[in-house]
Amino acid sequence: MIKPVLALLLAATVVACAESPTGRRQMLLFSDGEMSQMGGTAFEEMKKKMTINKDGATNRYVSCVADAITASLPPQWRGSWEVVVFQEASANAFALPGKKIGVHTGIFSVAKNADQLATVIGHEVGHVLAHHSAERMSVQSVAGTGTQLVGVLLGEGAGKETVMGLLGLGTQYGVVLPYGRAQESEADLVGLDLMAKSGFNPEASVSLWQNMSAASGGQPPEFMSTHPSHASRIKDLQRQLATATPLYQQAQARGIKPVCKR
Results as ranks from 00 to 15, higher is better:
239 R>M: 13
217 G>F: 05
231 A>S: 12
232 S>Q: 13
225 S>G: 10
244 A>D: 02
222 E>I: 04
237 L>A: 07
232 S>I: 10
246 P>N: 10
233 R>A: 01
219 Q>F: 04
239 R>L: 10
221 P>V: 03
221 P>Q: 08
228 P>G: 02
247 L>W: 01
248 Y>T: 07
219 Q>A: 14
244 A>I: 06
239 R>E: 00
247 L>I: 05
225 S>N: 11
220 P>N: 02
239 R>Q: 14
247 L>K: 13
236 D>L: 15
225 S>L: 09
246 P>F: 10
234 I>A: 03
216 S>G: 15
235 K>H: 04
239 R>F: 01
218 G>Y: 12
233 R>G: 03
241 L>D: 01
236 D>R: 15
225 S>A: 10
221 P>C: 08
224 M>V: 03
234 I>T: 04
247 L>Y: 03
239 R>D: 00
234 I>P: 00
215 A>G: 11
215 A>C: 06
241 L>K: 11
228 P>C: 06
246 P>H: 12
220 P>Y: 00
242 A>Q: 13
231 A>N: 10
223 F>V: 11
228 P>M: 07
222 E>L: 10
228 P>W: 00
241 L>A: 13
231 A>K: 11
234 I>C: 02
218 G>C: 11
220 P>T: 00
215 A>N: 11
247 L>V: 04
235 K>P: 00
226 T>V: 09
245 T>C: 04
227 H>Y: 15
235 K>C: 00
233 R>T: 02
223 F>C: 05
238 Q>L: 06
219 Q>M: 10
222 E>H: 02
230 H>L: 09
216 S>K: 10
241 L>E: 02
221 P>G: 08
219 Q>C: 04
238 Q>A: 04
240 Q>E: 14
247 L>C: 07
231 A>M: 09
223 F>T: 03
215 A>Y: 14
223 F>Q: 12
225 S>V: 01
218 G>E: 10
221 P>K: 10
238 Q>E: 15
225 S>Y: 08
224 M>F: 13
217 G>P: 07
224 M>D: 02
246 P>I: 12
234 I>M: 14
240 Q>L: 05
243 T>F: 04
236 D>W: 05
230 H>F: 14
219 Q>V: 03
242 A>E: 12
224 M>L: 15
246 P>S: 07
216 S>L: 12
226 T>D: 09
216 S>R: 13
243 T>D: 06
235 K>W: 01
240 Q>V: 00
220 P>C: 05
237 L>F: 05
236 D>G: 15
216 S>C: 12
241 L>F: 06
248 Y>F: 15
231 A>Y: 07
235 K>T: 11
217 G>Y: 08
222 E>C: 11
230 H>S: 13
236 D>N: 13
238 Q>T: 12
235 K>Q: 14
243 T>N: 11
222 E>F: 03
225 S>D: 13
232 S>K: 14
230 H>K: 10
215 A>R: 09
220 P>M: 00
237 L>H: 02
246 P>G: 13
243 T>V: 06
247 L>Q: 11
225 S>H: 06
247 L>G: 03
241 L>Q: 05
217 G>K: 07
229 S>C: 02
220 P>A: 00
234 I>D: 00
231 A>R: 12
244 A>S: 13
246 P>Q: 09
237 L>P: 01
237 L>D: 00
218 G>I: 01
235 K>L: 07
225 S>W: 05
240 Q>A: 13
241 L>C: 05
236 D>K: 14
221 P>N: 07
227 H>L: 08
245 T>D: 01
234 I>Q: 08
221 P>E: 06
242 A>F: 06
